[in-house]
Design a protein around this nucleic acid. Structure first.
Lengths: 337, 337
DNA sequence: AAGAGCATTGTTAACGTGTGCAGCACTATG
DNA sequence: CATAGTGCTGCACACGTTAACAATGCTCTT
């Protein structure tokens, strides 16, 4: 069952392989009748083009890379899922979607124009700056999603994390809270900083005191949310509300609260960030910030395809709206402080 | 910055391109000194091999396909995440990992030996039987994970869902429950049937009555768990325990319970299946069955690599142990019934 | 000293496509 | 009738790599 080539078809049709190639590619040069004849022969032989050969001569790989900063700690499953779904919906059959974590590369050696027609980087950390620069330098069509980057100019689609964090912190203040803690995201991630900044901005704007002991580190996973909340609960002066830098940590944090016999939101209010699938179904349903990852991924894929087609890239930064989602994990308190 | 080829290197080194090819591939035929010289020239020119050309002549694509039944409803993000992580950990730099949903294919046309060195199918539904048969027929090295398949013989690694379901149902019975409902998984999914069978088996074995109205449909997503539980709560005779066919639905189900002012497990016991990342962190922590998807994925990838290397496939079915994970969502009750 | 054998390198073809250019037959134009 | 034009097809080469085979120079053996 060795595979059939255009030369086999040519022989059967009594034409040259050139004619077959043209016919299958719908060249207007070919007589409609021979074209049909060739196509039907190809169909009956179950011909499939050899993509390696085509790639070689056309200088296209038919590969699109979807790169994450890491596929280990820091990338939540929901994030991965939404990104793949969004991109996949757009590219369909046209390209192979190759998924990889940047931190798995020892060297970027085989990231080049020959191997990838384009790249989508779901960037979470400054640590992949070098990768982005490398790819941009090689002039591979590229879009960078999720993390705003500086220095190198590329198409950059990002959620407005800072604004979202600002809104959710402000929401806590409006509900009467004045003792508001934060469990931060993974160090080095840009999103960690943006959410921290939004949080600070809201507190400062409303003259709410900011205490160092209410700022605890985390790394975006469940366990770190659990640990972070325990640290806060051990303080003499507890906060009345805690802003967790993502929903996973919020879930861990709530676990820590209930383990001590306390209740959310009655004894302590908790908010998250991301609006994961499960967040609406937790008890209590989590107040959080929706970050449109799937939408950004879709938009990024569309941009990339147009770059590849037009053989020309645009470079700009586009912010996507983040949205406060109010549910049941925040208590309204009377006095504040 | 047009890319450098072995011929360019050959010119600079004053040798033929064949020698360069051999040197870079560490052929023992080449004089160690010239080899070093060529390698250093290649390094300084920043040479990267053209994989399309290499693929063409070697008849290898360097592509591995990771195929899911669907990337839409029915595939939970945790499942996707664990599968990608497991496979990716094994293949590292050797191959491109191409992720796709089978239901996105209009035709399997460009699934062939030329385009894929091997396939990993995370099969969830009988609907991809035709895909598996197609691939097996084309003699592409293949492993099928997660779903036990019949008819076509391939390497098949699956969790023992039925045994797991049996154990968790038995656990409920041991805790004194005799009114046990089930919210089923997506119709047509093999796992749905296996879990149902395990559940029935346990009930029959222990002489626990099985009532039709306590068997409600679902489709593995949060919403369907929520809806299913509401159906059960509307019954005149409510169950005392509910086996949800996965953790996502358990989460939705618990939501429905708490919404009515009832509590888990005090008023109603709930168990799930999968042991998702978040299950230990729910309140109450969910009693469930651990299904080692990442482990299976890793094992599958290793098998596949060995098939490709040895150019020979084994065919058998291997069951992976599923494990009852006891947490806090089941109440011990005195009498039963 | 001649031939065998080895180490190293080069020549040439092949993988399956796509494409510039030439060529053919036929029609239209004057 | 000669010429230009048009519609269609084939020839020959290119893409970058690997590999079978040939060729070269050298060493060793007898």
């Amino acid at each position: 069952m060795s595979s059939v080539t255009i030369k086999d078809i040519a022989k059967l049709a009594g034409v040259s392989h050139t004619t077959v190639s043209r016919a299958l590619n719908d060249s207007p040069l070919i007589n409609p009748e021979t074209k049909d004849r060739i196509k039907s022969i190809a169909g009956s032989l179950n011909y499939t083009p050899n993509y390696s050969a085509r790639s070689l001569v056309l200088d296209r790989s038919y590969n699109l890379g979807l790169f994450f900063s890491t596929l280990h700690t820091g990338t939540s499953s929901g994030f991965l899922y939404e990104a793949i779904k969004g991109v996949n919906d757009v590219i369909k059959d046209q390209f192979n979607l190759i998924v990889r974590g940047i931190d798995d590369y020892k060297s970027y050696h085989n990231v080049n124009r020959k191997s990838f027609d384009g790249l989508i980087v779901m960037s979470q950390s400054a640590s992949d700056q070098s990768f982005i620069e490398y790819a941009a330098d090689k002039e591979i069509p590229i879009v960078v999603l999720n993390r705003p980057i500086d220095k190198v100019k590329v198409m950059n689609l990002v959620p407005d994390d800072q604004r979202g964090a600002y809104r959710v912190a402000e929401h806590l203040i409006e509900k009467g809270h004045r003792r508001i803690a934060i469990i931060e995201g993974k160090q080095g991630f840009k999103s960690t900083q943006a959410r921290r900044d939004g949080y600070r901005e809201a507190l400062e704007k409303h003259g709410v005191p900011l205490r160092n002991e209410w700022i605890v580190p985390g790394n975006y996973d469940l366990e770190s949310g659990y640990a972070g909340m325990n640290r806060l609960l051990d303080l003499k002066e507890r906060p009345t509300a805690v802003f967790c830098s993502n929903d996973d940590m919020a879930l861990g944090a709530i676990k820590a609260v209930t383990e001590r016999g306390l209740r959310v939101p009655d004894d302590l209010s908790v908010v998250g960030f991301d609006d994961h699938l499960f967040s609406a179904f937790m008890s209590p349903a989590l107040t959080t910030v929706r970050r449109p990852i799937e939408e950004i991924s879709r938009a990024g894929a569309e941009k990339l395809l147009s770059f590849i087609e037009k053989k020309q890239v645009e470079k700009s930064t586009v912010y996507f709206h983040t949205e406060l989602v109010i549910r049941d994990s925040v208590k309204t308190i009377a006095g504040g402080n």
